[in-house]
């Protein structure tokens, strides 16, 4: 005696595809509702996890939305609009470099806030360093500077001699001066741009500054 095997009602392929399509629509709608109901913190967590997977839209959204958050933190430390924007950008660069340190499942805000705070303090330290190197000049001293010294011809001459001195530098030293002193990149950024190690850049910059000082002062200040 043979028993006929029965696997239930047969479904043809087109009907199966329609069911799948409906299922997907239901799932998509479910996800859309879930996205609407999620808090900002949950949304940032989702975007951050997607950013770690290099999903460009989610990553751009996260960076854009977190910029305002970073700006608020930067304002606690700085009042100058330019500096605040510098802090925002430095923080975004740091977030990009160390996005592997975000641990999925944890809140994103404290992670970003800690990086933003560190960058804001870095900017404060840089400002203090600059202030230490600058000497205030009294108004009467400025008034006594002869006009000839302020003339555009002198400025042009000075620029020309700086350009000539720069051109005479070896390429690695010239690159170090351009990246670190003119473009004001950080050592790490300059290292990534030039392909030189940080210690090589430091050494090249040091040698370049000695050479420039020697050439521009004629050895008087060297």
């Amino acid at each position: 005696m043979t028993a006929a095997l029965h696997f239930g009602p047969a479904i043809d392929v087109p009907s199966f595809m329609v069911i799948i399509r409906h299922l997907r629509l239901v799932l998509d709608a479910g996800f859309a509702v879930a996205e609407l109901n999620e808090t900002q913190s949950q949304r940032w967590q989702r975007l951050m996890i997607a950013a770690q997977a290099a999903e460009p839209r989610a990553y751009a959204e996260l960076l854009r939305e977190s910029s305002s958050f970073i700006r608020v933190i930067a304002r606690r430390y700085h009042s100058d609009a330019g500096t605040i924007e510098d802090v925002v950008q430095e923080t975004l660069i740091s977030i990009h470099r160390v996005r592997q340190t975000y641990e999925p499942g944890r809140a994103v805000e404290p992670w970003i806030a800690a990086i933003a705070k560190a960058r804001a303090i870095d900017a404060l330290r840089a400002r203090l360093r600059r202030l230490k190197m600058e000497t205030p000049v009294a108004a009467e001293v400025l008034a006594n500077i002869p006009d000839t010294m302020r003339s555009s011809e002198n400025t042009l001459a000075a620029n020309t001699s700086i350009a000539e001195a720069m051109a005479a530098l070896p390429p690695a030293q010239r690159a170090a001066v351009r990246l670190l002193k003119i473009e004001e990149l950080s050592l790490r950024e300059a290292s990534e741009t030039s392909g030189q190690s940080i210690s090589a850049l430091k050494s090249a910059l040091h040698r370049a500054m000695l050479s420039l000082r020697l050439v521009l002062t004629g050895g008087r200040d060297a």
Binding site: A51, Q52, A53, P56, Y59, R99, Q100
Partner: peptide, 10 residues
């Protein structure tokens, strides 16, 4: 930064 992003492992 978005254009430079590559998948990374946490």
């Amino acid at each position: 930064l978005t254009s430079q992003a590559v998948p990374i492992k946490p």
